[in-house]
Amino acid sequence: MNLNILQGKAKDGGELLILKGELDAYTAPKLKETLLELVDIEGASVTLDLSDTNYMDSTGIGVIIAAYKKVCKNNGTLIVQGLTPRVERLFDITGLSDIITIEDINKEETR
């Protein structure tokens, strides 16, 4: 039960967070701190790379929802990429896939 958060730049010039490990009730506060700070800027552009996130539970979804709400308020963008089938299912069930931009990892090369 561990989560590594690597920070970099996305191809579109925005912020990129690569999440490696498990995103659950124990690790979500760590992401919440980093992510909410990044999106708390007018016009913030943040991409979350979840291709190495091998587990995510509803607490993780909660952090993404909080970030999404903040992004909407600040006229920014939040992009999620590299969903594993399990995480994709979670996005589908909760209806997040209708409102958050999900990108195919292959299209989004990172620097």
Binding site: I61, I65, Y68, T94, G95, L96, D98, I99
Partner: peptide, 12 residues
Amino acid sequence: AKGRVLGLDRST
């Protein structure tokens, strides 16, 4: 049954 979680968007 599809539908967004409660609390996500007011106009759902």
